[in-house]
């Protein structure tokens, strides 16, 4: 369903003598429909940049991203706009993912409006989504700063679900949350994924979390994918030194 070929993103810095940061460097992988690929790696290794490049939230330097056979990187602005709702992203900081000046109700209605859903249907759909992600109706009239991080991440999920996407990039969706809240959100994502047959790229630096969420794991180090395989293979028989370090780290605790 999703195939990434030779994807690279270099950031240049310096005006006279250009220096390049190879944030993502020649990355190849593919994800099957309904599968979850976990992406782990230390911070700054390029996970976020990779996720954003796939969705073209930043323009990659080189490579191909095939989504159902369509190369996303070749779409023009207008085609991209109509194509986009099929792919969604969940960000690390739930509080920053919502417009602070919009009530929860308006925030959830946004994607419906953009999809040109009839005005009279919107209110009902918003209610439905609010229940679906485990919020209660009284939350609809609050602002994001009046809700906790976990509740805001539920709102983000409701917005994403409103679009009926096929593919979701979740970039450390719980790293800003408490352990107990993390568990709630991860379980919610799992349930929704099963129910709606979603395809997921799940980014995290917590190997345990990725293990719980994913079918396969890709390990990223310095902008490259250094190891990829089924969850149990990675845990039992890590090849790359960094993966070994990650896996052994968990045993200490």
């Amino acid at each position: 369903m999703l195939e990434v070929k030779g994807l690279s993103k270099y950031f240049s810095s310096g005006i006279l003598r250009k220096r390049y940061t190879k944030a993502v460097d020649d990355v190849n992988f593919s994800i099957k429909r309904g599968e979850t690929l976990g992406l782990v790696g230390e911070s700054g290794c390029g996970k976020t940049t990779l996720g954003r490049s796939i969705l073209r939230l930043i323009e990659p330097t080189a490579g191909k991203v095939l989504f159902d056979g369509i190369d996303i990187l070749k779409l023009n602005k207008k085609e991209l706009r109509t194509f986009r709702p099929r792919m969604q992203m969940i960000f690390q900081d739930p509080d920053a993912s919502l417009n602070p000046r919009m009530k929860i109700r308006e925030s959830i209605a946004e994607p419906l409006k953009l999809q040109r859903v009839e005005k009279c249907e919107i209110e009902g759909k918003v209610q439905e989504l609010i229940e679906r992600v485990g919020l209660s109706p009284e939350h609809a009239n609050r602002y994001p700063h009046q809700l906790s991080g976990g509740q805001n991440q539920r709102v983000v999920l409701a917005r994403v679900l409103a679009l009926n996407p096929d593919f979701i990039v979740a970039d450390e969706p719980t790293s800003a949350l408490d352990v107990s809240v993390q568990a709630q959100i991860l379980n919610l994502i799992q349930d929704l994924k099963r129910e709606l047959n979603l395809t997921l790229l799940f980014i995290s630096h917590d190997l345990e979390v990725v293990r719980y969420m994913s079918d396969r794991i890709a390990v990223m180090y310095g902008g490259k994918i250094v190891e990829m395989g089924d969850v149990e293979d990675i845990f039992n028989d890590a090849k790359h030194p960094y993966t070994k370090l990650l896996v052994s780290g968990k045993e200490v605790v």
Binding site: S148, G150, Q151, V179, S180, V181, Q182, A183, Q184, L186, N187, D206, E208, V209, R211, Y212, K250, V253
Partner: peptide, 19 residues
Amino acid sequence: EGLLNSLPERGLKPIRGIS
């Protein structure tokens, strides 16, 4: 008990409700 059970390595079972 609830806090410990919500750890990923102990099965990610959350405490219901919010603080």
